[in-house]
C-alpha cells in the first residue's frame, strides 16, 4: 500500500455526498471528510458507526442522580438531622419531596457536563490543540475528501475528477 493520499475538494454538499457513495462503491478507503457544516447522511454514506454519546449521557445522568441521593441522605438525614419548620427529617423517604429539585439539577449537571467532556476527549478537541483540517477553505465553503491511494494513483484521480471534484491534490500521508 502506498503512503500517499489524495485530497479531493468539492464545493457542494450534494456533489460531495454523491462522490462519497461512488468512491465507496469503487472500494477505495476514505480516510476522512472535512466539511464546513454538518452534511446530513454523510456518516451513513461513509459507513460510520452511530455515536454512543447519547447512551453515555444517560449513564452520567444516573450517576448524578445516585450521587445526589447519597449526598442528600448523608447531609440531611445521617450527619446532622435538624427539625426545620417541622419538616420530617427522620428518614430519607419522608424528607425526599423537598430534595427533588436538587436531585433533578444534579442529574442534569452530571449528564450535560460529563457528556460534553467525553465528546471533547473522544474527538480530541481542547484548548491549545492544533487544527487538522488540511485546507482552510474547509471551514468556509469547501468540502475535502481524503482518500488513501491504493493501486494506481491516476485511476483514482480520474475517478475523483469524474465525481465532480473541483481540485485534486496528491499528498504524502503524515
Amino acid at each position: 500500500m502506498s503512503s500517499k493520499v489524495i485530497h479531493a475538494l468539492y464545493d457542494d454538499d450534494d456533489v460531495l455526498l454523491k462522490a462519497v457513495k461512488e468512491v465507496k462503491a469503487a472500494h477505495h478507503h476514505i480516510e476522512e471528510v472535512y466539511t464546513p457544516f454538518p452534511v446530513h447522511g454523510l456518516d451513513k454514506a461513509m459507513g460510520l458507526e452511530p455515536t454512543r454519546l447519547g447512551i453515555t449521557a444517560f449513564m452520567y445522568g444516573l450517576t448524578g442522580l445516585g450521587f445526589a441521593v447519597w449526598f442528600l441522605n448523608f447531609i440531611m438525614i445521617q450527619d446532622w438531622p435538624q427539625n426545620i419548620g417541622g419538616k420530617p427529617s427522620f428518614s430519607f423517604a419522608e424528607n425526599m419531596p423537598a430534595f427533588v429539585p436538587v436531585m433533578f439539577e444534579m442529574t442534569v449537571f452530571f449528564a450535560a457536563h460529563l457528556m460534553v467532556i467525553t465528546f471533547y476527549m473522544r474527538s480530541k478537541i481542547w484548548p491549545f490543540r492544533e487544527a487538522e483540517n488540511p485546507d482552510p477553505r474547509t471551514t468556509d465553503d469547501h468540502f475535502l475528501m481524503e482518500v488513501a491511494v491504493d493501486g494506481d494513483e491516476d485511476t483514482l484521480a480520474s475517478l475523483l475528477k469524474g465525481t465532480g471534484a473541483v481540485e485534486i491534490n496528491v499528498k504524502e500521508k503524515h
Binding site: 472535512y34 456518516d43 452511530p50 457528556m115 465528546f119 481542547w126 491549545f128 487538522e132
Partner: peptide, 24 residues
Amino acid sequence: SLVSFGWSGKAKDWQRFEEVSLVL
C-alpha cells in the same frame, strides 16, 4: 485557534456534535 479547540470539521466530529446538541 485557542478558543476553537482545534476544531477540524471531521465527519465523525460532526456526527458527535449533532448528537451532543440534541441531547443538550
